[in-house]
Structures are given as C-alpha cells and as structure tokens.
Design a protein around this nucleic acid. Structure first.
Lengths: 120, 120
DNA sequence: CCCTTCTATCGTTAATTCACGATAGACGAT
DNA sequence: ATCGTCTATCGTGAATTAACGATAGAAGGG
C-alpha cells in the first residue's frame, strides 16, 4: 500500500514535471516568437555585452519599443541586465538558453516512431 | 569592379539569409509559444498519428479551439495533415522540426565569447 | 544648481490572439 | 434520401501584443 502510494507519487511527480517542462518551453518560445527579439538575442550573443542604445541603433524600432522587447526577454529569463551608471548592460543568460535548447532538442519521436510521416 | 560587385552580392546574400533564418526561427517559436500547441506537438510525436478528436479528448479545450491550434501549427509548417474520410490524420513534419531544432542550436555565442555573463 | 545622456514606464491605438458556441460541409452507413 | 461522425470555419468578446511619443527618474559632468 505504502509502496504503491510511493509509486503513484513518483508518477504524479513525473506528470507534473512534464507539464512544467511544457509550459517552460512555451514560455521561452513565446519570448522568441517575434523577429526583433530573435535579433536581440543574436546580437547579444555576437558581442561581449551591449546597451539598450546599441540595440536601438541596430534595430528599426523606437527606443521605447526596444526597451519593451528587452523586458519581455528578461522576464522570460533569456537575458539579464546589469546597471552601469545611467545605462544598462545586457547579455544572454547562458543557462536559460541552454535549458531552452535542451527542451527543444527533447522534441523527438517516441520509441519506434522515427521518421514516420503521414501521407499529405 | 565586377569581382568586387560579386563579393558585395555574396555578402548581401548572406545578410538576406541571416534575416530569413531569424524570421523563420521567430515563426516556429511563435507557433510553439502556447502550452496547448506544445502539448499537441508532443502528443503527435508520441504516437503513430492522430485525429483532431484524439487531441480534443486529451486537451482541456473545445474542439474548435483545438482545430485552430492545429491550423496555426500547420501554417507554421510544424505539422501536416492527411485527409482520412471525414477525418484528418495529423503528424509532425520531421524536416521542419529538425530545421527548428537546428536554428535553436545555432543560437551560440560568437568566437571568444563562450560562457560570458554580465554581473547581474 | 543646470544640463545631458540613458532607459524604463506610461498611455494610446490598432491589430492579433485565444477561448467559446454555432454551423456548414465532407464522408460513410443505413 | 436521412442520420451520425468529424472537422474547419465563422462570429463574438475579452485579453494580449506591438508600435509609438511623452516623460519621469537615475546617473554623471561642469
């Protein structure tokens, strides 16, 4: 009984974890679901670090819009910012990016289902 | 001159390709930017194939909503559907998924910038 | 103190998203 | 033909998103 309950709890835990991982993936994906935000992440990956103003120069958007996009990426955990005088210095959060990449890589067919394709 | 122009064209082509890849990534990400759509893709990956009705049973959403989510995933190219009598049989589009995974995996720091993190 | 730089936030507007119920149309069975 | 199953589409309403200009507040310099 107690062992069976333990088994149920473990199963419940896995289902919860799966649900959480799904929501996490959706959250990251949503944050990257806009071209400007993709470009921001790539820009940040390509250089040491950068300021909001650098991005404003780089993207064809108003400063306030860029700031909003930065906020979305930050809330999704994909980037982080360090205050530097009157400026903020942004960079990608490596662990969160790796987590996202892992979640995406985990989208794989189940056992025995590789390369199946329905007749379209 | 002609050689220089060819060089410019190649560079232009690369910039265009980069822009296209960015938009492509954003498109895929946007399609997966909702928990129900993540769950749909996972469900399809876990089984041979499935019908809209199977998903309606699986998700806590109305049939019309499920159908709309399927449409979004289909328009993003991540899934495809084959008509089967009065039903439609859906499955994941393996090449599009692999493309998405490749684009995500390509989000990497530039040369000499590995594991950099700003002081947050 | 004033001025400049820098960025986040606010408010606004228009467009898009997301959920639902109703329904049309395709298909198969009788 | 009718009926049932199945799904896409339509219309609706509420919430969210994405763009912008204006502005407040932080920080630094003279």
């Amino acid at each position: 009984m107690a062992a069976k309950r333990g088994y149920r709890d473990a199963e419940q835990g896995r289902a919860q974890e799966r649900l959480r991982a799904g929501a996490e993936l959706a959250g990251f994906a949503k944050a990257l679901g806009h071209p400007a935000r993709v470009e921001i992440v790539r820009f940040l990956l390509a250089r040491d670090s950068c300021m909001c103003g650098d991005l404003v120069d780089h993207l064809p958007l108003a400063q306030s819009t860029v700031s909003q996009h930065l906020r979305i990426l930050k809330e999704a955990g994909l980037i982080q910012g360090a205050i530097d005088g009157p400026r903020v210095c942004y960079c990608v959060a490596p662990r969160a990016l790796a987590r996202f990449q892992g979640l995406v890589a985990d989208l794989r067919p189940g056992p025995g289902l590789a390369d199946r394709e329905c007749e379209a």
